[in-house]
Amino acid sequence: MKNPVMTASGTFGYGVEFADFVNLEDIGGIIVKGTTLQPREGNDYPRMVEMASGMLNCVGLQNKGVDYFCEHIYPEIKDIQTNMIVNVSGFSIDDYAECAARINALDNIPAIELNISCPNVKHGGMAFGVTPEGASAVVKAVREVYQKTLIVKLSPNVTSIADIALAVQDAGADAVSLINTIMGMVIDIEKRKPVLSIATGGMSGPAVKPVAVRCVWQVAKAVHIPIVGLGGIMTAEDAIEFFLAGASAIEIGTANFIDPTITVKVANGINDWLDRHGCKSVNEIVGQLDG
């Protein structure tokens, strides 16, 4: 990886949407929109609501399905010279495995991020992500058919994220990424109705950062595989917090909406910070909390 900065799924499209603003090849990795075996229309509008220092969304995995991805989108992005990673979601173990197997066949996709943690679909990914047994079963099935780098994305909406991370590691994951959005709800008090079409949605943005840092720190103590940290990162300093908590790479999500050039700014800012602190690489600070 050129640098430890990647884009979070669902916030950066397929990368090409941002090509006017940043050189995509200056980003360590681009994790594209959640992809499912079958096409999905997603949830009804309204799908987003703003809050102080963040937002909630309930997009609901709208995408054209993995076959469309392979035929029409992959050719458009396969020559972008960085790690193009596909975020895979599903509704059954077979769905996940089948989807992963089809992406395994694409030469220029070096990794997938398995989303077992989407809060915005009924009976969807999160059902697997909330118990160690469920998480383990999905990861095992995917591991059998998927030979490249397998990153598993974890939900913070659980009692013990470290237990899930351990189960996922034991089932064969190469890395974990966390956190996905935190389930929340906003009510329009005049209409006495939830603002979002499905009532609840996933919170993201700077408001969730302390929760994310805490999760990374807990998971880092439990597993030995690499951790990708995300949740509310807006600046290089935010990213450094994640490294110190135990992440060796990070993803930037909602911040892309505020500044479409944020990825490159954070990547440069991380280098500056490391220089100022006499460090040669991020590895020197991963998990290096004092005391």
Binding site: T11, F12, E41, G42, M48, V59, Q62
Partner: peptide
């Protein structure tokens, strides 16, 4: 004038139902 987040077609928050889907 749907509510928007990214404005770039990346987040799929601002969708309108059309004859071609969302």
């Amino acid at each position: 004038e749907n509510m928007m987040a990214c404005g770039l077609g990346a987040c799929l928050c601002c969708v309108e139902k059309t004859v071609k889907g969302n």
